[in-house]
Design a protein around this nucleic acid. Structure first.
Lengths: 242, 242
DNA sequence: TAGCATAACATGTTTAAACAAGTTAAGCGG
DNA sequence: CCGCTTAACTTGTTTAAACATGTTATGCTA
């Protein structure tokens, strides 16, 4: 249920592009045409199109038109500039998923943890280790740190489902912004054990470190996601600005 | 030289935030205040602020204000949702850089290459292998494929400098859009040799595969960048939308 | 004083209009 | 037929105004 006009137009155009209504490299109908189609103002239409641009679906060319450059992605891949939970990502790709909680504990941030996570010293933290399965294959080992005051009432049972559903649905928290850093790190014994990896085969893995902020500007989550290297795939679209 | 008002406002606000004019988590001046400061319309100001949002510099909160959440990045890291050449990235981080061309040849795309790169079968291609040094350390081994008709006149000498400068400056091509896919792959003998890696140490590396489009909607570049795992670092900001 | 309505102020959405700038094809003149 | 101007069409930028919605502090009432 889109709450705004530009979003419903955006979704409809996106759907039409994905449905192959426009050939690859074909020009979309002009702004004026689309304005009549959707019976909206030029600004509203342009706002929808600009989201398609940042999604990498189309490319605008001044004086020429808007070109469809959408090409469907073949494999499982993680979000493109969006915050997606593991569950959302799996659903989008039509795969079965399961989350196993390996560890659930509470702790207080000391100097070392604070330096690593950015949480204030003395802050009370939920620390979780979670293993994510896709089609019954263990792919990701997550180390989650949640600020207790923001995620109050979190339990192991909730963590086996979707933590984000709990935070957004039950606690009514808005999740806004996330900074993610991708690196390659050596495999640890824990990784080896739970992700069923063989050091002879791969001795390192993809690590995504993320800092997530809520609507009040509080960094409430620090997460380190350790991915099986042979299944890791991260996609993004870059737009050259200046 | 910013060519538009909103861009100059965006740059100034960005500069002010980076210069620590606003404390971390502090609210920026309200829209009305900034409109008076920059003597512009509300739309223009909001357009500038929305770019700061997508850069992860600020966070807007309806009814409350715009919060500064900028935190300077500690280490060398590659672009955040932008297309940056190796040289631009090095300059931004104030490091010395050098590019060595290992191989420069022309070839015609056959079925196999076409499937891998997306170039049309029979298309004439420049194929380059380039080694990038940062502070005299070999960090990245690039396999570049350029569509000859778009990069006409490319030479080994140009490739030792900035290919993008040549394409944008001399050939007046506009570079618009890039799709990037990050994966982790096994190290090859070539990687081992040129990046001075030891398989005992790391047996895999970060690989960024990118497809780049020009202003005419033509995919003119396919590049596979193979990064030393211990120096690879990729950062992005994700914004939750729906 | 506690609680509630409300005014003041914040950002979010939408429309309308005008002008700027790049592209293309029509049409005219040689 | 070629080459130029130009008109028509494209997207890009900017302003102004109105209304919607969320937040906060003021001030009144019980």
């Amino acid at each position: 249920m889109p709450k705004s006009i530009y979003e419903s137009i955006y979704r409809d155009l996106k759907r039409r592009i994905e449905a192959d209504e426009f050939a690859y490299r074909e020009l979309l109908p002009s702004e004026n045409t689309l304005i009549q189609t959707y019976n909206c103002s030029r600004n509203t239409l342009r706002r929808a199109v600009s989201r398609l641009v940042s999604d990498g679906y189309v490319q605008t060319m001044q004086g020429k038109g808007v070109r469809n450059i959408y090409q469907p992605v073949e494999q499982t891949s993680f979000a493109i500039g969006e915050i997606e939970s593991f569950r959302e990502s799996a659903l989008r790709n039509g795969q079965s998923y399961r989350t196993q909680v390996l560890l659930f504990m509470e702790l207080t941030a000391d100097e070392a943890l604070s330096a690593k996570t950015g949480f204030p010293v003395g802050g009370e933290i939920y620390y979780l280790q979670r293993l994510h399965f896709l089609d019954e294959k263990p792919l990701i080992l997550n180390h989650n740190y949640f600020l207790k005051e923001c995620a109050r009432g979190l339990t192991k049972e909730i963590a086996e489902g979707s933590i984000y559903d709990y935070l957004e649905g039950t606690l009514r928290m808005s999740i806004v912004n996330s900074r993610r850093i991708m690196t390659v790190e050596k495999i640890t014994e824990i990784d080896e054990k739970y992700l069923e990896l063989n050091v002879e085969d791969y001795n390192c893995m993809a690590v995504v470190t993320s800092y997530t902020y809520n609507g009040d500007g509080v960094m409430f989550e620090f997460t380190q996601s350790r991915h099986r290297p042979d299944y890791f795939r991260f996609q993004e679209v870059a737009v050259r600005k200046g």
